[in-house]
Design a protein around this nucleic acid. Structure first.
Length: 374
DNA sequence: AATCGGCGCAACCGCGTGGGC
DNA sequence: TGCCCACGCGGTTGCGCCGAT
């Protein structure tokens, strides 16, 4: 006996939402919070099922979502995380604040997957499907390493989820919550996932721990994405985010004031993954993904892994100009669209090679992710 | 100008899961 | 302990838009 559909009741509207419906839902949620989604439609005067209302809210009406084109940084993040996590869109979305899993899923299916295929890359594995792409050193790509990393990332995400729940409980138990935080919590609970990354909860917790000195600033934090900064820091980048000015204050804290290109900074020989609290030492100096040759390079890798694997994934390429341009091609300044078209094929390959090289050799000096402490 | 087909996005559907009773 | 409910997630579908013919 299967479950009966939630929308099989008569007189429940389906299909596109009207402006009136949007207004009703928006007004109700902003005034009362969503509470029980199932009970919401009747209270809000909507002829919709609760599920439909929830989806409309989470995917469209939420005030803290960004719409419009994905930035190159966001695209890169999606590609890299997808290589690790597969179609776990919610997990991927958790690393892209203001983006919904549905939007990311659509973008992947309609843009990124095709683009990857076009340049000869298997979208699922980020492996070259032909010899169009090759690793820099000619080594065969290590699927085992990717698998290790994916397993580790999965474990990390579970840990994050646990910590997020604990963090919520702690926050809920506090009776002295500033208004902005209360609003944030309400919004977070309404989304089913925290807007502020649980990673930050861990970081903040550790920062308050005697003997721990963890700098929250990170170029790899999604909070430091340019589009998440207050608009005053932007200079005509053409971002479509019109909500930045009204974004929750918790998104605009000190971690957002860092200069672009800042680095993860750790004090002392911190060998713990700051995101998970896991210690590399717990694995006898070898994290699960640290198979050779990475383990032998543990010294230089520690700082990187200390930033968390996802942090590495989200690290800067050091380049912001265009999606297609490799490091070398754009150092001479801005190029025209015509130029880009001419060079698209070659530069696509350069770009993807840089991703693939890095994915398969995270500790390699040729990594596009710069963690140079200087 | 009309038609057709592809594309992209919003929304729907069904399943899995966690919590409450 | 098992059942039920509510919610979240991922896959799929429907439809409007737009370019090509």
């Amino acid at each position: 006996m299967g479950r009966s559909p939630c929308c099989d009741k008569v007189n429940l509207k389906k299909g596109p939402w009207t402006v009136e419906e949007d207004q009703k839902l928006l007004a109700y949620v902003e005034k009362h919070g969503h509470g029980s989604w199932r009970a919401l439609p009747a209270k809000a005067g909507l002829q919709r099922c609760g599920k439909s209302c929830r989806l409309r809210w989470t995917n469209y009406l939420r005030p803290d979502i960004k719409r419009g084109e994905f930035s190159p940084q966001e695209e890169k993040t999606i590609i890299q995380l997808h290589a690790l996590l597969g179609n776990r869109w919610s997990a991927i979305a958790s690393h892209l604040p203001k983006r919904t899993d549905n939007e990311i899923k659509n973008y992947w299916n309609t843009h990124l997957k095709k683009r990857l295929a076009k340049v000869g890359i298997d979208p699922c594995t980020l492996k070259a499907t032909s010899n169009t792409l090759s690793s820099a050193d000619g080594r065969p790509r290590s699927a085992a390493n990717l698998s290790h990393m994916a397993q580790w990332e999965s474990a990390r995400l579970e840990a994050e989820a646990r910590l997020a729940r604990e963090s919520k409980l702690r926050a809920a138990s506090s009776s002295m919550i500033p208004q902005q935080q209360q609003q944030q919590q309400m919004r977070s609970s309404s989304l089913g996932e925290p807007i502020s990354s649980p990673c930050l909860d861990v970081l903040r917790e550790r920062q308050n721990t005697p003997g721990e000195n963890v700098d929250l600033e990170s170029p790899t934090s999604t909070l430091s994405f340019p589009e998440n900064r207050p608009p005053t820091t932007e200079s005509g980048t053409g971002l479509v985010d019109g909500d930045a000015a009204v974004a929750p204050a918790s998104h605009q804290g000190s971690e957002n004031s860092e200069p672009e290109g800042a680095e993860w900074r750790f004090s002392g020989n911190d060998r713990t993954d700051c995101l998970t609290g896991f210690s590399v030492e717990a694995f006898d100096g070898e994290a699960p993904w640290l198979s050779e040759p990475y383990a032998s390079q543990a010294v230089c890798s520690l700082g990187q892994f200390g930033a968390g694997f996802t942090g590495m994934l989200l690290g800067e390429f050091g380049e912001q100009k265009t999606w297609y341009h490799s490091r070398d091609s754009h150092t001479n300044g801005h190029e025209t669209c015509a130029d880009e078209e001419e060079e698209e094929g070659e530069e696509n390959r350069n770009y993807w090679n840089s991703i693939l090289n890095w994915v398969n050799s995270p500790s390699s000096s040729s990594s596009p992710v710069s963690y140079n402490p200087d």
